[in-house]
Amino acid sequence: GKELVLALYDYQEKSPREVTMKKGDILTLLNSTNKDWWKVEVNDRQGFVPAAYVKKL
């Protein structure tokens, strides 16, 4: 099944490779191999968020 993460904080994208999320959002985790930036999918968009801003559910 898909792995989900919870947004712990708001995050505003700073580049086209990133995505914006709001605290409390549930996101689909696509890739967590990089310890600093995790790739997630939110609202049919894929991009990176800081790993410290999310936690695995």
Rank of each mutant, 00 (worst) to 15 (best):
Asn43Pro: 12
Val40Ala: 02
Leu30Tyr: 04
Ala7Gly: 03
Leu8Asp: 02
Val40Tyr: 02
Tyr9Pro: 00
Gln12Ser: 12
Asp44Phe: 09
Ala51Glu: 03
Val42Gln: 14
Thr20Tyr: 04
Asn34His: 13
Tyr11Ile: 01
Lys2Trp: 11
Tyr53Asn: 05
Leu27Gly: 11
Met21Trp: 02
Val5Asn: 01
Thr20Arg: 06
Lys22Cys: 10
Gly24Cys: 08
Leu27Ser: 02
Val5Tyr: 09
Leu27Cys: 09
Glu3Arg: 13
Thr28Cys: 08
Asn43Arg: 13
Lys2Tyr: 12
Val40Leu: 04
Asp36Tyr: 15
Lys56Pro: 12
Ile26Ser: 03
Arg17Trp: 15
Ile26Pro: 01
Leu27Phe: 07
Lys14Met: 12
Leu4Thr: 09
Gly47Arg: 02
Lys56Cys: 08
Pro16Ser: 12
Leu6Ile: 15
Gly47Glu: 02
Glu18Gly: 13
Tyr53Leu: 14
Ala51Arg: 12
Gly47Gln: 02
Tyr11Met: 01
Ala52Ser: 15
Ala52Lys: 15
Gly1Ser: 15
Lys39His: 12
Lys39Glu: 15
Leu57Cys: 13
Thr20Phe: 04
Asn34Lys: 07
Glu41His: 07
Lys23Arg: 09
Leu29Arg: 01
Trp38Asn: 01
Val42Pro: 01
Gln46Asp: 07
Val40Glu: 00
Val5Phe: 07
Val49Met: 01
Glu13Met: 13
Val54Pro: 01
Val49Cys: 03
Phe48Arg: 03
Ser32Leu: 05
Leu4Arg: 10
Leu6Ala: 07
Val42Trp: 08
Arg45Ala: 06
Asn31Arg: 06
Leu57His: 06
Lys35Phe: 08
Asp44Gln: 11
Asp36Trp: 15
Thr28Trp: 13
Val49Arg: 01
Glu3Trp: 12
Leu8Trp: 04
Tyr11Leu: 01
Asn31Ala: 10
Lys56Thr: 08
Gly24Ser: 03
Met21Leu: 09
Ser15Cys: 09
Leu8Tyr: 04
Lys2Ala: 11
Tyr53Arg: 05
Ala52Pro: 08
Asp10Arg: 03
Leu27Glu: 00
Pro16Trp: 10
Leu27Trp: 03
Gln46Lys: 09
Lys14Ala: 13
Val42Thr: 14
Ile26Trp: 05
Ser32Thr: 09
Pro16Ile: 10
Tyr11Arg: 02
Gly47Tyr: 05
Lys35Leu: 10
Asp36Pro: 03
Gln46Val: 15
Arg17Pro: 06
Trp38Asp: 00
Met21Gly: 00
Leu4Met: 12
Glu41Val: 10
Thr20Met: 04
Lys56Leu: 15
Trp37Lys: 02
Asp44Tyr: 09
Val49Thr: 02
Asp44Met: 10
Leu29Val: 07
Leu4Asn: 06
Lys2Val: 13
Val54Glu: 01
Glu13Pro: 14
Ser32Ile: 07
Leu27Arg: 02
Trp37Met: 05
Tyr53His: 07
Asp25Met: 14
Pro16Val: 10
Asp10Val: 02
Asp36Thr: 14
Ala7Phe: 01
Asn31Asp: 15
Tyr9His: 12
Lys2Gly: 10
Thr20Gln: 05
Asn34Ser: 10
Trp37Ile: 03
Lys22Leu: 09
Trp37Asp: 01
Tyr53Gln: 05
Asn34Asp: 15
Asn34Ala: 09
Glu3Ser: 11
Ala52Arg: 15
Ile26Lys: 06
Lys39Met: 15
Asp10Met: 04
Gln46Gly: 06
Ala51Thr: 06
Val40Phe: 00
Pro16Arg: 09
Ala52Leu: 10
Tyr53Val: 06
Thr28Pro: 15
Leu29Ile: 04
Tyr9Trp: 11
Glu3Gly: 09
Lys23Ser: 08
Val54Lys: 01
Trp38His: 03
Thr20Ile: 03
Arg45Ile: 08
Lys2Pro: 14
Glu18Arg: 04
Asn31Ser: 13
Asp36Ser: 12
Asp44Thr: 11
Tyr9Ser: 08
Thr28Ile: 15
Lys14Gly: 08
Lys55Phe: 11
Ala52Asp: 09
Ser32Gln: 09
Arg45Phe: 05
Leu4Gln: 11
Glu13Asn: 08
Ala51Phe: 03
Lys39Val: 14
Val19Leu: 15
Lys2Ile: 13
Lys14Ile: 07
Lys23Asp: 02
Asn43Ser: 11
Glu18Asn: 05
Asn31Cys: 10
Val19Ala: 05
Lys22Met: 10
Thr28Ser: 09
Val19Glu: 01
Arg45Tyr: 05
Thr33Met: 11
Gly1Trp: 14
Asn43Val: 11
Ser32Val: 07
Lys56Gln: 08
Lys23Ile: 06
Arg17Gln: 14
Val19Arg: 02
Val19Pro: 01
Ser32Pro: 06
Leu30Glu: 03
Tyr11Pro: 01
Asp25Thr: 08
Trp37Arg: 03
Arg17Cys: 13
Leu8Thr: 03
Pro50Asp: 02
Asn34Thr: 07
Ser15Trp: 07
Lys23Phe: 05
Ala7Pro: 00
Lys55Met: 15
Lys2Glu: 10
Lys2Cys: 12
Gln46His: 09
Val42Asp: 10
Asp36Cys: 12
Asn31Trp: 07
Ser15Gln: 08
Asp44Glu: 12
Asn31His: 07
Gly24Asn: 06
Ser15Asn: 13
Lys39Ser: 08
Gly24Thr: 02
Glu13Ser: 15
Leu27Thr: 01
Glu13His: 09
Thr33Ser: 15
Gly24Ala: 03
Lys22Pro: 00
Leu8Glu: 04
Gln12Pro: 06
Val40Ser: 00
Lys23Val: 07
Ala51Tyr: 02
Lys14Tyr: 05
Ala51Lys: 07
Lys23Glu: 07
Val49Asp: 01
Asn34Phe: 08
Asn43His: 14
Pro16Asp: 13
Asp25Glu: 12
Val19Trp: 05
Leu6Trp: 07
Asp36Phe: 14
Asn31Ile: 08
Thr28Asp: 06
Pro50Val: 02
Asp36Leu: 15
Tyr9Gln: 13
Val42His: 15
Asn31Val: 09
Gln12Leu: 13
Leu6Asp: 01
Arg45Leu: 07
Asn31Met: 08
Lys39Arg: 11
Leu6Gly: 02
Asp25His: 06
Leu8Lys: 06
Trp37Thr: 02
Glu13Ala: 15
Asn34Cys: 10
Glu41Arg: 10
Phe48Val: 07
Asp44Pro: 06
Ala7Trp: 02
Thr28Ala: 10
Tyr11Val: 02
Glu18Thr: 08
Val54Arg: 00
Lys2Leu: 14
Gly47Val: 05
Tyr11Phe: 08
Lys55Thr: 14
Lys55Arg: 13
Thr28Glu: 13
Ser32Gly: 11
Thr33Val: 10
Val54Asn: 00
Gln46Asn: 09
Gly24Gln: 02
Thr20Lys: 04
Leu4Asp: 04
Thr20Trp: 04
Ala7Ser: 06
Ala52Ile: 12
Gly1Thr: 14
Trp38Ile: 05
Glu18Trp: 03
Thr28Gln: 11
Lys14Thr: 13
Leu30Asp: 01
Lys14Gln: 13
Met21Ala: 02
Met21Lys: 00
Pro16Leu: 10
Glu3Ile: 13
Glu18Met: 04
Lys55Leu: 13
Thr20Asp: 04
Ile26Cys: 06
Asp25Arg: 02
Lys23His: 05
Leu4Gly: 03
Ala52Cys: 13
Leu29Lys: 02
Val49Leu: 02
Asn43Leu: 13
Leu57Met: 10
Lys39Ala: 08
Tyr9Met: 12
Leu6Val: 14
Ser15Asp: 12
Ala7Ile: 03
Lys56Asp: 05
Val5Leu: 14
Asn43Tyr: 12
Phe48Met: 09
Tyr11Asp: 00
Val42Ser: 14
Ala51Val: 06
Thr28Tyr: 13
Glu18Cys: 06
Gly47Ile: 05
Tyr11Ser: 01
Thr33Lys: 10
Gln12Ala: 14
Val5Gly: 13
Gly47Thr: 02
Phe48Asp: 04
Asn31Gln: 10
Glu3Phe: 11
Glu13Cys: 12
Pro50Trp: 03
Val49Tyr: 01
Glu41Thr: 08
Thr20His: 05
Leu57Arg: 04
Leu4Cys: 09
Pro16Ala: 13
Asp10Thr: 07
Val49Trp: 01
Asp44Ile: 06
Tyr9Asn: 09
Tyr9Ala: 13
Asp10His: 06
Arg45Gln: 08
Gly1Asn: 14
Lys39Tyr: 15
Val49Gly: 01
Ser15Tyr: 06
Lys56Ala: 08
Trp38Tyr: 07
Lys22Gly: 05
Lys22Arg: 12
Ser32Ala: 13
